[in-house]
Write a protein that binds this DNA or RNA. Sequence first.
DNA 1: TTAATATGTGTCAAAAATACACATTTTAGT
DNA 2: ACTAAAATGTGTATTTTTGACACATATTAA
Lengths: 244, 244
Amino acid sequence: MQAHIYTYRYIMTREDIKDYFNVAISVSMVIFAFDGEKLRILIQRRDEDPFNGAWQLPSRFVRPNESLELNAKMLLEETIPMTETIDSYSEQLNAFGKVYRNPLGRVVNVGFYCIVKMTDEDRRMAEQKGMMWAAYTEIPDLAFDHNEIIDYAKQRLKRRFKRRPVGFSLLPKEFTLTQLQILYEGALNKKFDKRNFRKKVFNSALLIDLDKTIETSYGKVSKLYRFDEDKYEKMSLKGYDFLF
Amino acid sequence: MQAHIYTYRYIMTREDIKDYFNVAISVSMVIFAFDGEKLRILIQRRDEDPFNGAWQLPSRFVRPNESLELNAKMLLEETIPMTETIDSYSEQLNAFGKVYRNPLGRVVNVGFYCIVKMTDEDRRMAEQKGMMWAAYTEIPDLAFDHNEIIDYAKQRLKRRFKRRPVGFSLLPKEFTLTQLQILYEGALNKKFDKRNFRKKVFNSALLIDLDKTIETSYGKVSKLYRFDEDKYEKMSLKGYDFLF
DNA sequence: TTAATATGTGTCAAAAATACACATTTTAGT
DNA sequence: ACTAAAATGTGTATTTTTGACACATATTAA
């Protein structure tokens, strides 16, 4: 607080730089979730100008006393309050700073993305609150440059999938290998051979066999697995690359 | 221009958001170069408060009519005017937005890094202008959070080295395989077996044998190679991963 | 002429990636 | 009760990639 007052006075006495302090910062969040079939991204209807009524990414101006990360965290919590976001994966993407990207004035947007476990409650809530879980491959036209931000997020997610076990943040704690494979195929836009996929996953030795099965809609029951986070932590300390 | 006047008046009438437009954006640039032995990063002495006299990354406030990328480009050109920066590799790192990172007020810094071919002229110029090419592994304490930005840039460079042939942007157009290996060893902080290194490089089939040699200070003459950019362009279109 | 320093080259073994097919279990429909 | 459809789950052979490893040759400095 003290520091803020101090800096405010300081700026007032520095005529040479005063004109730079007239930009706004906003944060946008690309929230990825997986419904068992498809990867999805949460978008919402704007209810004010500019672009009133258009779809957009959940976004928020940065207040003077909030760091970017704190702002992103608050944005996430107010957008999907029902979801456990504490252990979700979140990361900054990039600053998007085209001069006229926002007609209100100079707004530099800092994009974030995160990966959450979607709950049924979230899906119901979403529709009530003017939000939509849009399919990864069918994102409509969005306000501002938000389509560009999503494209960037998709690329980043793809890279992360190849090197880090982020996929598990999208699945329920207990999952089947088929779910895992569908997820990877969706994220990397590529088909895998079932036997080779499983071989690779088992070789990583990061799955715990739960000795439990779950009924699928049709066909045999599936075995359930869990991701061994502790083991991964230990391995990743010495620069370990995950799959693919 | 028209748009700028429009947005200015618009903001004036929106009391609810006016308070957000009081942040400054700065751009910092981590400039990597290679002197044949070591990777180096360009730093400069500050000549004004705050942190007067301290080392910092080349930095610049963003003016209202400049995009982040344009600003970064101008920063690079005014910092090392003698270097050909047109074909150098440049990329945004991240936005650094801690609340009190700059005592002047709320300044969000957008970090960039770039990779240039160092010329002898640059090295001489640098010292005259209060700049220093600091060794990659021995960066002194810098103003603001610039050490943090450099750490981030080093990580990013390491990742890029593994997947993209960015190394060639650091070497002269014609280089020896020993130079290439020293560079990779420095960037990845890892030793390679000479025969295996060469095997891998040749397998990529992206080097053109120039049928020329160059005298080294001691020992046999070395063969010179050039990087085949056209061929790489074609290969990278279909998601090609470089070496290591 | 000798010692020091640098370049440049091939083989073998292990590990990883890839291609490929069928038996089993369960449900839905008749 | 039977059949068709849909899903799970499993092994082997081949190719490719990685990694370990040693010495002859050219050049310069002393």
